[in-house]
Amino acid sequence: MNIFRFAGDMMHLTSILVLLLKIYATKSCSGISLKTQELYALVFLARYLDLFTDFISVYNTIMKLVFIVSSTAIVWCMKRDRVVRRSYDKQLDTFRHYFLLAASFALALLVNEKFTFQEIFWAFSIYLEAVAILPQLVLLQRSGNVDNLTGQYVFFLGAYRAFYILNWIYRYFTETHFSRWIACISGLVQTALYADFFYYYYISWKNNTKLKLPA
């Protein structure tokens, strides 16, 4: 494992911790898209079906468990916690995420590394992760003002993707048989979706003003 991959994983972990911190400390999930969170939980459940069949490393196994548990806990909290669920911006979170689900699954049936149950679900999780942030970005754009923790949550998610791209570039030049087009192309698409957000995040950071996205 190279330093870029590890940094990416740590950014991913940090984004989840920031989100948990926001929900627990403020007892509020305003500005957070439940649809995006549901999609992420599904991404991890579909991708880590290999938890029981393929062992890579203790690090991988622990991280997989952490991602599954934390993402389902966030969804559970937003739906079931008496206090937290009251702050959910339901009327703003109207993105049709079932469309993303159907499109990702259809693509996974067509483009996969092998036509097996696990490989189809793996490809599905890669495609779904690439677009799962869309409901969140749409919600932020609709609500206009973005609170600090929510902004940082999306920032760390984007940083995670950026480091994974550096990781692939590094692996491409250092490994002899590096070919993972499905993950790389989907990853590029996913990172591109953050470009706009990063631009406004940078502007607000530079001017030391509150993050605001144009309508």
Partner: peptide, 10 residues
Amino acid sequence: GAAVTEHDEL
């Protein structure tokens, strides 16, 4: 057949 890429990333 072609070997499937090992999914060693998260």
